[in-house]
């Protein structure tokens, strides 16, 4: 039986619909580095997680997510749910690629493949978010949030002809004109309660969200802490100024 080496999980519709040709390119690049690569295509939301779960159980040495932060989260979730200590590799071909950026993954596919082929693994922190829809929890690598920031993200996903930063800029301007209602939040952090009215909270493992927002400039993915960013109501023009500044940095 052949030893399982690298499992590549990729959305065939990723990279502006060129996922299949991208997969062939990536497989050939791995072969140039002397690594055997098996390709698995995702079919729908959640499929990347089940593919990663099975891949980890089958004993692949590295499981690679080719896509954006959503695909990366799903693949990481599958690995973690398997209970196997299999490392994750990332080839950033998604919309925002925020986690890949903070992880120091090259944007160029050839360089990302070379990095994975070298296989220098380090350990990182992971978030687990539990709620009514997901009582077992959803893992996240880069961050979790609600209010303004995820609204921008969801809006950006509606723009099929825009990708990366332009889609977030347009979505940002739209949500700026249609901001969320303030939420009454009770935060319990280290046993200390805090009541706030807020339209925005981001729990960050990484620094950047939405391709350009530097939400938590001091965050590190291996420091053992989240950086929690929230705004007090109202999300005024004065408050928006530094957000715009960080967006354009």
């Amino acid at each position: 039986m052949l030893k399982k080496d690298i499992l590549l999980i990729i959305n065939p519709n990723a990279s502006k619909g060129k996922g299949k040709s991208k997969a062939k390119e990536i497989k050939a690049l791995f072969q140039k580095h002397g690594r055997a690569c098996t390709v698995a295509y995702t079919r729908n939301q959640g499929h990347a997680m089940s593919l990663a779960f099975r891949g980890a159980s089958y004993g692949y040495s590295i499981i690679v997510a080719a896509g954006g932060d959503g695909t990366v989260n799903e693949v990481a979730s599958g690995i973690l749910r398997s209970g196997k200590d299999i490392p994750l590799g990332i080839i950033p071909i998604g919309r925002g690629n925020d986690f890949a950026w903070i992880a120091g993954i090259p944007q160029k596919t050839e360089e990302a493949v070379a990095l994975i082929a070298r296989g220098n693994v380090s350990r990182i922190d992971v978030g687990l978010c539990k709620g009514p829809d997901h009582p077992d929890g959803m893992y996240f690598l880069n961050g979790a949030g609600f209010g303004f920031e995820p609204m921008v993200n969801f809006k950006a996903m509606e723009y099929k002809r825009l990708n990366g930063m332009p889609s977030y800029v347009v979505a940002f301007l739209y949500i700026l004109r249609h901001p969320p209602k303030p939420y009454h939040l009770k935060l319990v952090i280290d046993g200390v309660e805090k009541d706030i009215e807020s339209q925005q909270i981001s729990v960050c493992n990484g620094r950047r969200m939405g391709s350009s927002f530097m939400m938590a400039p001091k965050a590190e993915i291996d420091d053992g802490v989240f950086d929690v960013m929230f705004t007090n109501y109202p999300l005024s023009g004065a408050l928006m100024s530094p957000i715009r500044k960080s967006f354009l940095t």
Partner: peptide, 14 residues
């Protein structure tokens, strides 16, 4: 609820 799982995942990183 949000829980941090410290150093829970191996990552091939740069």
């Amino acid at each position: 609820s949000l829980t941090i799982l410290r150093r829970a995942l191996g990552l091939v990183r740069g």
